[in-house]
């Protein structure tokens, strides 16, 4: 995954997490049944989405940096290449 795409995903993840954490912070100062609902259904969803986007970005970045099999085989048997 190129660097720009990763950074874009990190920003998106960060934005969602900031929004979710902000909702959570506000609901902590409001003792009402609605606060609980907002926390779960708005804050919770934003936080989970943000974490998922981050984890997906990690996975995609990990796949992009994995070397292919031909490269690995060549590296393991340098004496073959020398011949």
């Amino acid at each position: 995954m190129d660097r720009n795409k990763l950074e874009r995903r990190l920003r998106t993840s960060g934005a969602l997490l900031l929004a979710g954490l902000g909702v959570e912070l506000v609901t902590l100062f409001w003792s009402h049944s609605t606060a609980f609902l907002l926390f779960i259904f708005l804050g919770g969803i934003l936080i989970v989405l943000g974490m998922m986007i981050f984890l997906l970005a990690l996975l995609a970045a990990g796949e992009a940096t994995t070397p292919d099999d031909s490269g690995k085989a060549a590296d393991r048997t340098p004496e073959v290449r020398a011949v």
């Binding site: 997490l17 979710g20 954490l21 959570e24 609901t27 902590l28 926390f39 804050g43 919770g44 936080i47 943000g50 974490m51």
Partner: peptide, 8 residues
């Protein structure tokens, strides 16, 4: 975020 969410 996991700590914050769990604590919340």
């Amino acid at each position: 975020p996991v700590l914050s969410g769990g604590g919340g």
